[in-house]
């Protein structure tokens, strides 16, 4: 049932944004559509040993530290932006792009 739900819908985000029963991380997870079954698994794990609990420091604390520059995987970025298609898609965000000329050039390359 959850699979059919559309993901990344703005109205969903707005609805959940001020819902204080969800943490911001949960809001984003639900918004992206990766939720429900994961939560159940996690709660079951916790029940197993309720006396000895290991402090969960795996990345949880780190995500609470403020970062102005997100952590990027630079190899993936390089791959993404070495791709000519991605660069061409981004080009319309630049003033240097002559849209007419670009259209013609693209039309030409299609025939090759």
């Amino acid at each position: 049932l959850h699979r059919t739900k559309p993901r990344f819908r703005t109205t969903d985000l707005v609805r959940m944004m001020y819902d204080d029963s969800l943490t911001p991380a949960e809001v984003l997870r639900r918004w992206s559509g990766a939720d429900a079954d994961e939560d159940e698994d996690a709660s079951q794990d916790e029940d197993d040993d309720d006396f000895f609990k290991k402090a969960d420091n795996s990345g949880e604390g780190e995500s609470l530290e403020d970062r102005a520059v997100p952590k990027y995987d630079y190899d993936a970025l390089q791959e993404k932006w070495s791709n000519a298609e991605n660069i061409e898609a981004l080009r319309r965000r630049f003033a240097s792009a002559d849209l007419l000329k670009e259209k013609r050039a693209r039309g030409g390359s299609d025939y090759e």
Partner: peptide
């Protein structure tokens, strides 16, 4: 590498 990472980061930010 620093120059490359920074340029790609800028492209990513613009995108």
């Amino acid at each position: 590498d620093i120059g490359r990472q920074c340029a790609y980061q800028l492209l990513e930010t613009i995108s």
